[in-house]
């Protein structure tokens, strides 16, 4: 099936630019005429994932495939990995530093929020190798 593919480098050294990829995807979906409610679900889920790559994994890559009825998002990083995924998924669990918290992030709500706003979510992670988060959001 025809799909629109988008790819982004997510800079792990630049907190200010975090969200660029999600913002671009949001704009693309809007232009394609996807409903505002669906656009917002995608935007929030992807933005949380993008922020995670920046604050927990020194950045990475975002690969996006847009189909007529859904979007697939792969967030790939070569960061430290997640040792206990069930624990990481718990609301309120966070290893974020005080510095990150002073920037307004690190409440431990990102992964639960991504789960909430996506229709499918899968985390593949190996400690010392990296993490890939897959998100599918149906329109």
């Amino acid at each position: 099936m025809e799909c629109i593919r988008l790819e982004y480098d997510v800079d792990g050294n630049n907190f200010s630019s975090a969200g660029n990829a999600s913002d671009s995807v949001k704009r693309t979906l809007k232009q394609l005429g996807v409903s505002p409610a669906s656009v917002r679900r995608v935007a929030i889920a992807m933005y949380e994932g993008e922020i995670n790559m920046v604050i927990h994994a020194h950045g990475g890559r975002a690969e996006v495939e847009i189909y007529p009825d859904y979007i697939d998002i792969y967030l790939k990083d070569s960061g430290p990995g997640i040792a206990d995924i069930d624990l990481a998924m718990k609301a309120g669990y966070s290893t974020a530093t005080e510095n990150i918290r002073s920037l307004g992030f690190g409440a431990g709500m990102g992964l639960p929020n991504m789960k909430k706003y996506s229709d499918e979510m899968k985390i593949d992670s190996t400690v010392g190798v990296g993490t890939t988060v897959f998100l599918r959001v149906k329109f």
Partner: peptide, 17 residues
């Protein structure tokens, strides 16, 4: 309404429409 000033405040607002 917020006391934070970094660009992610605008990003967050944008994502939430």
């Amino acid at each position: 309404l917020t006391g934070l000033l970094n660009p992610q405040v605008v990003r967050t607002a944008e994502m939430m429409d």
